[in-house]
Amino acid sequence: MQKGKNNSRRDFLKKLSLGIGGSAVALSACNSPDFDDFLQKNFKTLSKEDIDEIILNLEKKYSEKYGKKFSVSAEPAIDNTLFGYALDLSRCIGCRRCVYACVDENNQSRDPQIHWITVLQMDKEKGIDYMHSDIHYNPELVPEEGHFYVPVACQQCANPPCVKVCPATATWQEPDGIVVVDYNWCIGCRYCMAACPYGARHFNWSEPIVPDEEMNPISHYLGNRPRPKGVVEKCTFCIQRVREGKYPSCVEICPTGSRKFGNMLDPESEIRYILENKRVLVLKAELNTQPNFYYFFGV
């Protein structure tokens, strides 16, 4: 944080900041912000050159901080792509492998703990019933008799209520359907968390803690790069992976193959096959959020 900054622009900005009222200085002193960061515009409004510069600075900053080569991608959405996800409820056994694969891949805070995926255990008799679901189940072996499991993460809604309510336009939907957050722009008002019907958004209540050696250095600006405290984060379908043609890490780890992912606009894709041949369920359909995340029964 306190690195030598001989840059004249930064010096100028520092001097400028001294002129700002006492309270502002007190606030910024407590948050010890990088003033370039502070003055950075909304990612959506940045030019290509600005983005390149920011990315370079970030890579340098993170590489120094975590002591390993860090890459930050700003890869835009691929043309003619709309990502879709399908989850086979008849196969999911609730083992939570996906939860921790996601934590490792996406650098979620270990303490305080943040999980982008929540696995709900429900009773077969009651069917899909959130009010009687349990997230703390911890038996010797899963699946437990009489239960089934519904993993819930961001549903990447086509009509996202979280995007609509954000007062600062700090979150938006990319052309490939992924709803992303600009962590530098998010003010942390948490209106999106109140608006999300799936509990998919998570807040960095305190400074997130990820051990340096566990930090995944292959990151995306809108995805798994380290987050500051006081901002909201969420599942991005592993944006750093899927835009490079890989599967999200939850899909790769799943021991039962319950998780299916692909480009819904590609008629040859597996996801398209499922959508055309299986009957699919979306959670809370009555809210018209139009998720790009479907649940189905493979067997």
């Binding site: 502002a24 606030l27 910024s28 948050n31 912000p33 502070f38 909304n42 600062a168 700090a170 722009w185 998010c186 003010i187 942390g188 008002c189 948490r190 807040f203 960095n204 500051p228 405290k229 006081g230 901002v231 909201v232």
Partner: peptide, 9 residues
Amino acid sequence: IGSPVKFWH
């Protein structure tokens, strides 16, 4: 709000 210095956003 989580990041009061970013209020101007």
